[in-house]
Simulated assay, not measured.
Amino acid sequence: MGLILLFLNVFSISVIAQSKEEKQVASAVKMLIKAMIDGNKTALENISSNALSYGHSSGKIQDKAAFVKAIVSGQSDFVTINLTDQTIVVKDKTAIVRHKLSAQTNDGGKPGNVNLGVMLVWVKEKGNWKLLGRQAFKL
């Protein structure tokens, strides 16, 4: 009986730890979205891995510097971003986030709307979740 209780206790701890990691990743996603809407260069640089590969639904790929520059300059300007149907899977120091993104944009001063599916890949670097990869696709 003691062995069963020990097993259940260990299992409960691992489930709680997984939920904690998922919450941290969800928080990182929220920080990313806020930084994108605000055009906050420092926040975008802090949340992104130096090895970032940021893929657009058009097929365009940006590294960290190009991604940050496009957001900060207004070339890629998000006025609003709404995420739905988000899922998060954490495995060790890697997380995969999937969601649907609908947004109002003002890219280069031209108003528009986007509806995308997005997959984000996050890695834990020095205790913080950093965006390593992003790929969007048209819905």
Rank of each mutant, 00 (worst) to 15 (best):
K100E: 12
V68R: 01
A95V: 07
N113D: 08
A70N: 11
P111F: 07
A65F: 02
A65M: 07
L101Q: 05
D92R: 09
D107Q: 13
S76P: 00
G59S: 03
T94Y: 11
T94C: 14
K93L: 13
T94F: 11
D85K: 15
K69E: 15
G109N: 11
Q86W: 01
V79E: 11
N106M: 12
M119C: 13
N113E: 08
I71Y: 00
T84D: 14
V90W: 09
I96Q: 12
S58C: 11
G109F: 13
S57C: 00
G59V: 07
F67W: 05
I88Y: 05
G74F: 04
T94Q: 12
N113K: 04
K60R: 15
I81N: 02
G108E: 10
K91R: 15
S73V: 05
S102Y: 03
T94W: 05
D107C: 14
K69I: 02
N115W: 07
K91T: 13
K110E: 12
N113L: 03
K64H: 04
D85C: 04
V118C: 12
A103M: 06
I88D: 02
V68A: 08
L116K: 09
V72C: 12
T87I: 00
G108A: 12
S102P: 00
V118G: 01
S76D: 14
L83W: 01
D63L: 07
V90K: 04
K91Y: 13
T80G: 10
N106Q: 12
N115F: 09
A95T: 03
Q62C: 13
N82V: 14
I88M: 07
V89R: 14
N115R: 09
V72S: 12
K60M: 15
G112Q: 05
S102T: 11
T94L: 15
I88R: 04
A70L: 10
L116N: 08
S102G: 03
I61F: 03
G112N: 06
D107Y: 11
I96G: 02
G117H: 08
S73F: 02
K69C: 05
N115K: 10
T105V: 08
V90R: 05
L101P: 00
S57L: 00
N82I: 13
P111R: 04
S57Y: 01
V97E: 08
N106A: 10
Q104H: 13
K69W: 06
K100N: 15
A66T: 00
N115V: 09
I61L: 14
V97M: 09
A95E: 11
V79P: 03
D77I: 00
V89E: 15
T84V: 13
S76L: 15
D85T: 10
K100A: 11
G74W: 06
V90L: 06
D85I: 07
A70I: 10
H99P: 00
V79G: 03
K91H: 10
I71D: 04
V68M: 08
I96A: 10
K64P: 04
Q104I: 08
T84H: 06
G59N: 06
